[in-house]
Design a binder for these strands. Structure first.
Lengths: 220, 220
DNA sequence: CCTTGTGAATCGTTTCACAGCC
DNA sequence: GGCTGTGAAACGATTCACAAGG
């Protein structure tokens, strides 16, 4: 299914979010597997880890090419490289964090980002009391510097960790300044201009889904 | 479709997670709408807020009963109450947080939980340096007290915010002690016994989905 | 013989469209 | 006339099952 000349161009139309989420999971497992010195892996082993089926694993990969050998499985090394490339992790991404409250500060210092190629290049807050605080080598900067810094450092991704009321105005500012993707932790639904990607993580919603499941038996 | 005698029993078989997630979103909007003094709302207004369609809103609600009046819309007050009941938010839930690192501490102090009926009744860490720290009125307790406290306070939900390596062992302990739902923030896939619900939030995966979208154009 | 890659079948979710009711 | 509630149609994702290839 893949174009035989250039393994790095993926002729993709539309990929389901669930597929991308699983690829991210497979990648994590492949890295562990590689660290343990294993050379090959089958779709079944990958599936066991991801809580899915071998057919699902093969289908997920088939959207992007054929990476395995029949009868043998996949080269751990090659598949790791292929998935990193599919996900766009071959080059690092620059991230700014807008809001240096508890969650913003926690994310700024979170090791899991840098270890996967996401570099936090700036943390911003409007509170003078927080500006200047050191978070793991980064100094919190005033929100007034946002536009200047975005033009200078060209980060692609903004993580929004301000209170709900302030979120939309800040998203408007960072997207106007050139940010192309937004990860929203504020409990408010945001809108972004065309061409900008938006994802939201809502802690309260996650707990509410648990509450629903607890009260309605084994549903969901 | 609803049983006419008791509005609080919902004869539900299987509800999609996406439906529950949207209900949580509708509830947030309804509360805002109520605060603004509006008395009724249509499925179209609710849809505009949730980024969905009026048919979707009506279908979501139809799984649980009929709450509106044809030609008129929904009573904001009644629909708010109905969704709170559907989600199981009529009574408060007790939550423990396992791991008092950056993210655990941030969640322990997060207002968005308590304001929606989730009460954090304990925060635990194994590091002696963190035990005794005060987080917004809660004192970090030693992990060794987990079982005793779960038996005593009967929390239903555990939020796991320890490093990946430690996560499975702690989930085993809290589920053995009686926890029925787990929200996992550790970047490790966990397994839970039958009858226990598990959800995972992975910050790195969220960024990776953004990276995929950025590198693959308007896909996902 | 084992495991991949993939059309075809199945299953689940969303959208359509309209009858029913305020 | 306007909006809900809901079967039916359309769409999308997952699972099946098997041909192809090491």
């Amino acid at each position: 299914m893949n174009d035989f000349t250039s393994p790095q161009t993926f002729p993709v139309k539309h990929i389901a979010e669930s597929t991308v989420r699983r690829l991210s999971l497979y990648l994590r497992f492949l890295e562990e597997f590689e660290a343990k010195g294993h050379e090959t892996i089958s779709s079944g082993e990958l599936a066991a880890f991801g809580g899915t089926t071998s057919a699902q694993v093969r289908k997920d990969l088939s959207f992007f090419g054929s990476f395995g050998k029949r009868g043998l499985g996949y080269s751990v090394k090659d598949l790791t490289a292929a998935i990193r490339e599919i996900l766009g992790l071959e080059h690092p991404w620059s991230v700014i964090i807008v809001g240096a409250g508890k969650i913003g500060a926690a994310l700024a210092q979170y090791r899991g980002f840098s270890s996967r190629g996401f570099t936090v290049v700036g943390v911003y807050d409007k509170e003078p009391a927080r500006v200047g605080l050191k978070l793991d080598g980064l100094v919190v900067r005033p929100e007034s510097e946002l536009e200047r810094d975005i033009h200078r450092l060209k980060p692609q991704i903004a993580v929004i960790t301000v209170p709900a009321e302030a979120a939309q105005a800040l998203v408007d500012r960072v997207t106007a300044a050139g940010i192309k993707a937004v990860l929203n932790f504020a409990p408010a639904p945001l809108t972004v201009p065309d061409g900008v990607t938006l994802r939201a993580v809502n802690m309260a919603t996650e707990l509410e889904i648990l509450a629903f499941t607890l009260t309605n038996g084994t549903t969901v």
